[in-house]
């Protein structure tokens, strides 16, 4: 199962993924022209601030079974057979917002889009960049992420990497009295710094 894996601690809140997402799904696909388009392109990924200056790029997780699909009364939401992604048939959407109500991540918004010629706002969710995937490319948000906070790949491969890192830390701690495996110095420093800085944060 391929997914966009999020490494929240690597997210620096640059919102580059949001811009890349909006451009990818726009009519002109050019940074200097998209913001003159009507309707104005919008991102389908949302970078929200958390505590201690951490941020989380939140987007459709393409659940299976997907609560939004189960709640949709018109069958506008369907599963893509090739990629397993939850996709939308915009012309079937009646904008009842049931999908948004049941979404566990609250990532479903409603907007007008240039390619679905209806008068009202419709479900506006991540399409997993299935067109890019068909061309052998990774989703636009992942390509835009320069810190690897977003990585696209087989979920089991991606968690394996994290597991191996954990094993390394665990074994390097063998025979010591620490309660938990020690963190790399850089990660510890980064967390400490953010915790101190966040005292000045408006969110504190």
């Amino acid at each position: 199962m391929k997914t966009v894996f999020v490494n929240p601690e690597r997210c620096i809140g640059c919102r580059h993924c949001e811009v890349a997402c909006a451009i990818e799904h726009s009519q002109t696909k050019e940074v200097l022209t998209v913001f003159f388009e009507d309707p104005l392109p919008q991102p389908r990924i949302h970078v929200e601030p958390g505590i201690d200056f951490t941020t989380f790029p939140n987007k459709c997780r393409h659940c299976n079974p997907a609560p939004c699909m189960q709640a949709c009364p018109t069958g506008a939401l369907y599963r893509d057979g090739t990629t397993g992604s939850v996709l939308l048939d915009g012309y079937k959407c009646i904008a009842c917002s049931m999908c948004a109500i049941v979404c566990p991540f609250d990532v479903i918004t409603f907007h007008k889009t240039w390619n679905i010629k209806v008068e009202h706002e419709i479900n506006f969710k991540c399409d997993h960049c299935v067109e890019r995937q068909a061309r052998g490319e990774v989703p636009a948000c992942v390509e835009a992420c320069k810190t690897d906070a977003l990585i696209f790949g087989e979920i089991n491969e991606l968690t394996k990497q994290g597991r191996q890192d954990f094993t390394l830390r665990l074994t390097s701690n063998a025979g010591r009295v620490d309660e938990t495996p020690s963190l790399p110095a850089s990660v510890k420093m980064s967390r400490d710094m953010n915790a101190k800085l966040s005292k000045f944060s408006p969110l504190e």
Partner: peptide, 29 residues
């Protein structure tokens, strides 16, 4: 470097003072 930073390309990021850096949301939200 691809894709290059949209905020940088649009010139809507300001790093001129210590209250920032600030940027304008091009999506209007």
């Amino acid at each position: 470097q691809q894709p290059q930073c949209g905020y940088g390309q649009m010139g809507i990021c300001c790093t001129n003072c210590a209250m920032g850096p600030c940027r304008i949301d091009p999506f209007g939200n």
